[in-house]
């Protein structure tokens, strides 16, 4: 077996350190070493984006990076969203606009959207679709995902947003 390496990362503001084999993928490190299973493994072929995390604020596929490569970096996973027990705008958007069905792609979708809105608080629909184009939703719920991101963008810009879902939700 190859020599183990020390990985020291900050995940959602908390520092973690572990000794792992160099071949351990970042997604396995998060899920198996740190017990943070919000980051999903969808395809294992660098196609689906379910495993997306933010590395220093930039979306990366954690199945296509070794844990050791995250050493010294600042990671955000879906567990890091939300403040003071409440939802942050992107989560609220997905909630209000029914942006998830099975929920499997949702962590990746929210993280790429968060990165998009940090850079561009008023994206066009085309810009949103482009930003999430590396993330697959096999429920094909893209319409509502786009609306969720639009909701979050408005909430961030103006402090409030209204759901486009008609009537009282049952």
């Amino acid at each position: 077996m190859a020599e183990t390496v020390t990985v020291k990362v900050t995940v959602n503001g908390v520092e973690h350190e572990a000794r792992v084999e160099p071949r351990m993928l970042l997604v396995h490190f998060l899920r198996d070493e740190l017990d943070m299973t919000g980051t999903h493994i969808g395809c294992d072929t660098t196609n689906c984006g379910a495993c997306t995390v933010l590395v220093d604020g930039v979306p990366m596929k954690s199945c296509t990076m070794f844990a050791v490569q995250a050493d010294g970096h600042d990671l955000t996973t879906v567990e890091g969203l939300g403040d003071n027990g409440g939802l942050e705008p992107i989560q609220e958007g997905f909630h209000q606009e029914h942006g998830l069905q099975c929920g499997f792609c949702t962590p990746g979708m929210m993280l790429v959207s968060k990165a998009l809105l940090a850079e561009n608080p008023d994206p066009s629909e085309a810009e949103i679709r482009r930003a999430i184009s590396g993330n697959l939703c096999r429920c094909t719920g893209y319409q509502n995902i786009v609306k969720s991101v639009q909701y979050a963008a408005k909430k961030i810009r103006t402090g409030s947003a209204e759901s486009t879902v008609g009537g009282g939700a049952s």
Partner: peptide
């Protein structure tokens, strides 16, 4: 090239 997430890396 590929998709936006792959392009970041």
């Amino acid at each position: 090239i590929a998709d936006p997430i792959v392009r970041n890396r």
